[in-house]
Design a protein around this nucleic acid. Structure first.
Lengths: 139, 139
DNA sequence: CAAGCAGATTAGAATTATTCTAAAAGGTGA
DNA sequence: TCACCTTTTAGAATAATTCTAATCTGCTTG
């Protein structure tokens, strides 16, 4: 019998290897939580709690290591909007953020319609890395 | 003899009282470092080192307390651009930031010329707090 | 498909930034 | 000056993150 390979089921091992990362059990478990389903924002603690709920044992240190590796590999983007904690965003397309200061929630919004005009030129000897627009709101 | 009161010498005690803060020795010493001279960006540790260099003894805890109080009183603005540490900006006019990621330096740029158009409306039940534009560059 | 090795994981200690605590000191109105 | 309430302080505590050193595991090779 021929086995059906559904392209609808994302193969995280392949995806990790493509990013130059060995597909270990914990990295695959974390990738599953992060990348199946839509775009998300996680903190290290939050992701750790979530992966534990899937009955995979992953240490908090590994969650931190993995988040940093995923970010370095271009699978995640780190977002710093509040003192003390980092958020990691699975949406790698060009976009900006709403930050609800009163409850620490972060939401994407597409940059399609957003225009930032009149920015000064970067200081000499520097090259542009990216432009972040953070819309801070309160409840 | 009539004493001359020069308006060119900023009276930090008065300024603090106007902001609802008692002008204690350490608050005045910190205000002097922060507000005499042009706009600046400081971290708690950096400010602590600077004030010690003026031969005033101010504990690190007081530096933290004071930065938070000054921020709450509208004398400073907190800027969060990098994980782990907060910057405090003495420039309270409307402006944005360059952040030189490679060496952690922060620079203002005026928002006169900058236009941010096409922002989506804030989520229901929230009101706009402010819009930050951070231009990240690397050496 | 066993062996070996480089890379990954882990628990717990360490580090860093910041806040808290409780006691001592200081600013201020009467 | 006194009394009172606020501030300051040293050091302990907390929170987020990184480090360490030992153990484990993918993966390549024979």
């Amino acid at each position: 019998m021929v086995r059906m390979i559904s392209s609808a089921i994302p193969d995280f091992a392949v995806r990790l290897r493509a990013a130059g990362l060995r597909p270990t059990r914990q990295r695959v478990a974390l990738a599953r939580v992060l990348f199946e389903g839509g775009d998300r924002h996680v903190t290290a603690e939050g992701l750790h709690a979530e992966v534990k709920a899937t009955s995979h044992r992953v240490s908090l240190a590994t969650v931190y290591n993995t988040l940093n590796q995923f970010r370095d590999a271009g699978l995640l983007r780190e977002v710093v909007v509040a003192p003390g904690r980092s958020y990691f965003d699975t949406n790698m397309s060009h976009h900006h953020h709403f930050f609800i200061e009163t409850d620490g929630e972060l939401h994407d919004f597409p940059s399609d319609k957003v225009t930032v005009a009149g920015l000064p030129t970067p200081p000499k000897g520097t090259k542009l890395s990216r432009v972040d627009v953070i819309v801070r709101v309160r409840r």
